[in-house]
């Protein structure tokens, strides 16, 4: 036969090398990266603005919720906060708001809570189900009163990803005001462990795992993502080319 395994492998590798070369072409690259916009538009057209993700029963919770990414920020500042049980930790809420806030954990707990058993879908392909408890982000943003120009909410984290780049993520107003978008301080009825983002992390349930920013320090309302980090709206977006819209 003309096609033996070796020919097939060499052929496949050559074609794939061709695809790789193609991907270096600026136009092709732009097309590949802009598929995200189509998916965001299509998904948002298909779903109600406040469409909820499925919430599971307690018996469907994963036996162990896999932590991923930073397991411990380990910076001197974070360690100092951790040693005192985050008594000195404050969540700063600023940027385009009329009333900047500085909230302690106790003050956050005083807000109305929401509890939800949801599935965490990692961009890598695995899923874990956990019960989260926290304050709807909407409540905090309402307390800080967003100004008109505020289009995105940026979440700055305590973990240093190397080279002075802090982890950060951002979401738009649609997801920021979604009823299931919460600032979570508890997982499976326990205060967040360090590996899962203590003392506070974001849950934005209609998006993938890398959007669920851990070790929250500061929330900033902005008009544009330019000038923050690498300008693409998140650490992995800047450094690995991940899609900013992670509902896909």
């Amino acid at each position: 036969m003309i096609l033996n395994r070796r020919t097939l492998i060499v052929g496949a590798a050559a074609t794939l090398a061709g695809c790789d070369r193609l991907a270096k072409n600026e136009t092709v690259r732009e097309a590949l990266f802009s598929a995200e916009n189509f998916h965001r538009w299509a998904q948002r057209s298909l779903m109600a603005r406040d469409a909820l993700v499925h919430e599971f029963r307690p018996d469907q919770i994963s036996p162990f919720f896999r932590p991923n990414g930073t397991a411990n920020p380990n910076t001197p500042e974070y360690k100092a906060l951790w040693r005192t049980g985050f008594a000195d930790w404050r969540l700063q809420v600023g940027g385009l708001v009329e009333r900047p806030l500085s909230l302690s954990l106790a003050q956050l707990h005083a807000f109305p809570h929401r509890e939800q058993i949801t599935r965490h879908d990692c961009v890598e392909g695995w899923s874990a189900i956990g019960k989260w408890r926290g304050v709807p982000l909407k409540r905090v943003l309402d307390a800080a009163r967003l100004r008109d120009g505020a289009r995105y909410i940026v979440l700055h984290c305590a973990d240093d990803m190397g080279g002075g780049n802090g982890y950060y993520e951002s979401i738009d107003r649609v997801d920021a005001f979604h009823p299931q978008t919460i600032l979570a301080f508890a997982l499976n009825d326990q205060p967040l462990r360090v590996a899962n983002g203590a003392p506070l992390r974001l849950r934005v349930e209609r998006q993938l795992g890398y959007k669920q920013a851990k070790y929250l320090m500061r929330i900033e309302a902005v008009t544009s993502l330019d000038g923050i980090g690498g300008g693409k709206g998140g650490f992995w977006e800047d450094h690995a080319g991940y899609d900013w819209y992670a509902g896909i």
């Binding site: 496949a12 695809c19 991907a23 097309a31 598929a35 189509f38 690995a240 080319g241 991940y242």
Partner: peptide, 24 residues
């Protein structure tokens, strides 16, 4: 192996860009 993956080295972001562009 890299002979059968696109791109021909591990790059999750690029694999996703290809996949999500072709899929629709």
């Amino acid at each position: 192996g890299s002979w059968i993956t696109l791109p021909a080295h591990y790059n999750l972001a690029m694999s996703r860009h290809w996949h999500l562009t072709a899929a629709p």
